[in-house]
Nucleic acid binder design. Structure first.
Lengths: 186, 186
DNA sequence: TAAAAACTTTTTTTACAATAAAAGTTTCCA
DNA sequence: TGGAAACTTTTATTGTAAAAAAAGTTTTTA
């Protein structure tokens, strides 16, 4: 059943955000009150489950991204801004502090994840280059911008300093994008 | 002899940048062609040596910081910009990717280090608040700016993506500060 | 006097067996 | 049929003794 697959993958994401990679197949079956047999009927093994979940997790964001790119009512710089905020929507579901755990135990899954994040940047990169060519924003290496965004997000997620202020994670993200986009304007 | 102390502490910084915390007292004595006895005449034990080295490493930056603050020819926003770049001068000597190693093995040294970095931000924070009050820059929580700067620097240091471009670490740092300061301007 | 080297003591790493936990399979039952 | 639980097999964790490495001290040497 197609819905079962989805429920299982939702449970995987849920467990991951709770416990990092330290969750078991039993945890998932208990959370959903299904038998492990049902999981193994849908997925050959844990690896395949994780692979499918990465694809599943990124499909939503890919869709949103496509919408932004296709939206002709937005100007180039606004599109870029929205695309960058679109990325963190992913990161919000995940939790970057725990991604390093995947790298060690499931290197293949990590590589797939890294590829997807990389390819998400691909579209943003194109628009950034276009905007630079049109003289709308400063000419700066795209990797610099990428590292600033990613570094900031990771810090937001791993530090408790923002919690002390009454700025939400959401607000911080938007504030960060504002500063960077505004700072890039010519 | 005072010069000997300094030479030893320079060797500690040098070894740290080469090997992280995985260097020995023998490594230091060999690098300087001195006997371990000489080191232990200057410093009671390895802990004391590390404590002294943290102080030593920060004294230069503190001095530079004081100069910037005292320089009346600089306007407020320029001062902030220079102060933030002043901070990375530290981080450049150190190497953030290896700081986490200190945390595990020498927690007391790490705490001292963290305190110094924190207090370095203290001055920058004051000026940022002042500039916000004067309406020179946007009102944004200071921790947000701090996390953006620190997150970017850590990423610059830990990623090889910048190496692929022909942007040096120094240039990246200045580019990053430019974007953030420009982005904060009202 | 201080470097070099030899030395003792403490700390870290390694290796490996015992144990526990989790993956994956099978059986039973509503 | 599919959940619950019992089961086997594989993987990960833990404890510990031996070995190695590093801290810190003493002796030798120049």
């Amino acid at each position: 059943m197609q819905e079962t697959r989805q429920q299982i993958m939702d449970a995987v994401i849920n467990q991951f955000n709770k416990k990092g990679m330290k969750f078991t197949m039993d945890d998932i079956s208990k959370e959903l009150h299904i038998s492990k047999k049902t999981i193994y009927k849908e997925f050959y093994d844990k690896d395949e489950l994780f692979f499918a979940t990465v694809d599943y997790g990124f499909s939503a964001i890919k869709q949103k991204e496509a919408e932004i790119i296709a939206d002709d009512s937005l100007n180039l710089v606004t599109k870029i801004s929205k695309l960058i905020v679109c990325l963190p929507d992913n990161y919000k579901n995940i939790d970057f502090r725990m991604v390093y755990q995947i790298k060690e135990k499931y290197p293949k899954v990590y590589m797939k994840l890294a590829e997807r994040i990389e390819s998400d940047w691909g579209e943003t990169e194109k628009l950034l280059n276009k905007a630079m060519d049109q003289g709308l924003i400063k000419k700066v290496p795209v990797p610099l911008i990428k590292l600033m965004v990613e570094g900031s997000i990771e810090k937001f997620l791993s530090s408790d300093e923002l919690v002390k202020t009454d700025f939400s994670y959401e607000q911080s993200l938007n504030g960060m994008i504002d500063i960077i986009i505004n700072g890039l304007r010519t």
